[in-house]
Design a protein around this nucleic acid. Structure first.
Lengths: 149, 149
DNA sequence: CGTATTTGCCCTTGTTGGTCAGCATCGGGG
DNA sequence: CCCCGATGCTGACCAACAAGGGCAAATACG
């Protein structure tokens, strides 16, 4: 599941990707533009900073910017930083495997076998899609509208 | 995310799929065999009954059995009955669409576009995998072990 | 140097998932 | 016909997510 935390975080990253390079946006600006509760966004941007995806500058004219070009920041990395593993269940995670205490034989657990397939499909997509691509696709939809008014 | 509810429910269905046709298993038997808290399992089997996936019989020699052959019960249906929509976020669900109140334009929301892809991949897999297939794959792993002792 | 501004951190409050305990209810068999 | 054995239902309790308020810390600018 994608929690509100993950959703807001992705939106904030896409917002930052729309800024000119090396420009910063303040949390208040992002919060109003994306309709995100400001306090919650503060905590989220803090996590993204700890994960090394954004850099923050305090004081006047401070704010946040992406730590790398948006084409090098993958959606999967952001979701992992905010919501934890991509796998629908801990025992199906490859980055943060945690066995269920209720499976007798982990290797032959029918649920785990299926959920591992779900995880692999999701991870392939999310780790292969960058923030720049997310922004590009949304812009393409807008353009499609404009052409068909 | 797959909650414990969904995980336990799938395990219970796979357990029932292993019984001879028209045989019933009591919740206590399933709970001990699959290491599931009994009371929680009672509620889960109740939901699966309300969803029409299992049928229950009360009284002596009562218990639960699948309502249809296990090849006709899809994992996706069980997860939807227990954990809700397969989509990672409500606005990306096709069966139970719910708009986020924070997206201005739903159609061009970058998060929704990406999560719709995740949902489609997951749904294709989960709605295409039956309880019988889940059981079969787990059995195949066991067999693989036996051959390589 | 000091002050306004903005991030960074802690503590509190409501909502949801997970679990347990007990009581109500139904149904078959002696 | 009634009683044992099973499902079914309600309420209580604890942990995690969601969100908000207040305060400390850092930094650019006058």
């Amino acid at each position: 599941m994608l929690t509100n935390k993950g959703k807001y975080g992705l939106k904030a990253l896409v917002h930052l990707a729309g800024l000119p390079p090396d420009a910063t946006a303040q949390s208040m600006e992002i919060a109003t533009a994306e309709a995100i509760p400001k306090k919650f966004l503060d905590a989220i941007l803090g996590d993204l900073r700890n994960a090394g995806l954004v850099v923050a500058r305090k004081g006047k004219n401070g704010g946040y910017r992406l730590s790398r070009p948006p084409s090098e920041i993958m959606a999967g990395a952001a979701i992992r930083a905010l919501d934890g593993p991509l796998a629908p269940i801990g025992c199906a995670s490859r980055t943060r495997y945690r066995p269920c205490d209720d499976c007798g034989d982990v290797e032959s657990c029918s649920v785990r076998l299926l959920m591992t397939e779900v995880r692999d499909l999701s991870a392939k997509l999310l780790d292969g899609t960058s923030i720049a691509e997310m922004r590009g696709r949304a812009a393409a939809v807008i353009e499609h509208y404009t052409y068909h008014i």
